[in-house]
C-alpha cells in the first residue's frame, strides 16, 4: 500500500485543514478510549507528509496505551519519556522520516518521567524546533487528564476525536470541560458516512 491508495487518503481532508490553518503542532485526544485517536494521528501525519514538503514529526504521547510505539515495534527503544527525564536527547530518540514517511518519537520508558508543562515546553522549543509540523497522539482526557493538559497548553490546536453515532455526548461535554475554554479544542468526527465530492483532491491539485 502506498500513499496513493484510498486508505491513507481518507485523512487528506483532515490534513488539508491542518495545512490550511497553518497549525505547526496539533494534538489528538478523545473523551473515551477506542475512538480512533492513534489511527487518525497516524493517518494525518502520513497525509501531511504528502501535503507539506517539510519534515513532519509524529509523537506518541499516550502514556496509557502507546499503540503507535507498539505498531512501530519500538517498545524498548528510548523515546519521549526518556527525553523528558533527561536520559537521552531527542535527536537520538527520534526515528528519522523520509519524503513519504513522518519522523517518529516513541513513548520510551513511561516510568522515567511524566509530561510537565516546563519539560514539554523545553522539549518543543529546543529539541523539536527543527520539525515544522508535530502531530501528537494523546490518551483519552477522561482517563488520562494529567497527561493531556500540559500538551494542550503548548500545542497550536487540540482536536478531540469522537465517533459519529457512538460517543456519548455527556462524556464529550465532560472531556471538553476538563480541557477548559482556553484550549479552544475542536472536534474531529470520526467514521462518518462518506460524502461525495471532496475538496481534498482539489486542494492537492492546486498545491502540486
Amino acid at each position: 500500500m502506498t500513499l496513493d491508495d484510498p486508505l491513507p487518503r481518507s485523512f487528506d481532508g483532515l490534513a488539508s485543514r491542518v495545512d490550511a490553518t497553518g497549525f505547526r503542532s496539533v494534538a489528538f485526544t478523545s473523551a473515551l478510549a477506542g475512538e480512533g485517536v492513534s489511527t487518525i494521528a497516524l493517518g494525518t501525519a502520513l497525509s501531511l507528509v504528502a501535503l507539506r514538503s517539510e519534515a513532519v514529526l509524529l509523537i506518541d504521547a499516550n502514556w496509557i496505551q502507546p499503540s503507535l510505539t507498539e505498531d512501530a515495534q519500538l517498545a524498548s527503544a528510548p523515546g519521549l519519556a526518556d527525553c523528558l527525564a533527561g536520559n537521552t536527547d531527542a535527536a537520538s530518540a527520534i526515528r528519522p522520516g523520509s519524503r513519504s514517511r513522518p519522523a517518529f518519537l516513541p513513548i520510551g520508558d513511561r516510568t522515567a518521567a511524566r509530561p510537565t508543562l516546563r519539560s514539554l515546553a523545553s522539549l518543543l522549543t529546543r529539541d523539536l524546533a527543527n520539525y515544522s509540523t508535530a502531530i501528537v497522539d494523546l490518551p483519552p482526557v477522561l482517563a488520562g487528564e494529567s497527561f493531556v493538559l500540559s500538551w494542550a497548553a503548548l500545542v497550536d490546536q487540540v482536536l478531540v476525536v469522537l465517533r459519529e453515532a457512538s460517543t456519548p455526548l455527556p462524556q464529550v461535554r465532560e472531556a471538553l470541560g476538563k480541557l477548559g475554554n482556553a484550549t479552544n479544542a475542536q472536534i474531529v468526527l470520526n467514521r462518518t458516512v462518506p460524502q461525495s465530492g471532496s475538496a481534498t483532491a482539489a486542494l492537492r491539485a492546486v498545491r502540486t
Binding site: 455526548l169 475554554n181 474531529v188
Partner: peptide, 11 residues
Amino acid sequence: LGPARLFATVP
C-alpha cells in the same frame, strides 16, 4: 457541544 466547533470529519 457549545463553543467546540467541528474541525474536520474522517469518513
